[in-house]
């Protein structure tokens, strides 16, 4: 513990960069997955090829991707952020699609019949109702991302992952444990914040939270796989 206190500045700095490396991919993932998910639901034929593509992203070993990307992006943050973004897409896109599909047909039909335009209907009706399922996917993607950043340490960009390699080389396990605990705490905090975010965004779900959560979790089939990896 005294080691952690003595190195608090370094730990804080690496925690910051760890969060940055983990959360930027999630941010990009959200920005990309929502329009892509909407597209997959609107034009059904686009869904099978996009699903296959996300499965490829999912299967791709991140280390191999880092090594390939070094040629293009060098030893910058992008070399870690890009593979993690692709990985987050493999969780987020299927959840956006599942979320949009969970909107009851009569609700969708009523919206059309009231005279919502296509875009307005997506933004004002379908996406708000998809929020519980989308956030379920977001939780899995975020926790995985926080955990996977440390793999980037193999090319020297890994946030708190630094302490794993350093601790190993110096035969100093304290370092490893401290970093590990920090990563787990970060993951818990991020997950908790997302739960709060969902509650705040979906006041109409409050009284039936348990039911909504169960529905959201069953939609996150791919999500449970992702947890196994991390």
């Amino acid at each position: 513990m005294s080691w952690a206190w003595d190195n608090r500045a370094l730990l804080a700095q690496d925690t910051g960069s760890h969060l940055y490396l983990a959360l930027m991919p999630i941010l990009f993932g959200i920005i990309v997955s929502i329009p892509v998910g909407v597209l997959c639901v609107r034009f059904r034929w686009t869904w099978p090829p996009i699903l296959s593509l996300t499965s490829v992203f999912y299967a791709m070993p991140s280390l191999a991707l880092y090594l390939v990307l070094i040629d293009y992006t060098g030893l910058t943050d992008w070399t870690v952020i890009i593979p993690l973004t692709l990985f987050s897409l493999s969780v987020l896109i299927p959840n956006v699609v599942a979320g949009l599909r969970s909107v009851p047909q009569p609700v969708r039909q009523a919206a059309t019949a009231m005279g919502f335009g296509t875009l307005r209907q997506v933004v004002q009706v379908e996406l708000p109702l998809a929020v519980p399922v989308i956030i379920a996917g977001l939780r899995v993607a975020t926790v995985s991302s926080i955990s996977l950043v440390s793999v980037g340490q193999l090319i020297g960009i890994g946030g708190l992952g630094y302490f794993f390699t350093d601790g190993e080389q110096r035969d100093f396990p304290t370092e490893i444990y401290v970093a590990l605990v920090l990563i787990v705490i970060l993951a818990f905090l991020a997950d908790g914040l997302l739960v709060l975010l969902r509650r705040w965004l979906t006041p109409w779900e409050r009284a039936r939270d348990t039911r909504a959560t169960r529905r959201a979790l069953s939609a996150t089939v791919r999500g449970s796989r992702a947890e196994g990896v991390s």
């Binding site: 009851p104 039909q109 109702l129």
Partner: peptide, 9 residues
């Protein structure tokens, strides 16, 4: 409509 189609949110 029969199922009302009210917006739950």
């Amino acid at each position: 409509i029969q199922q009302t189609g009210l917006f739950p949110h």
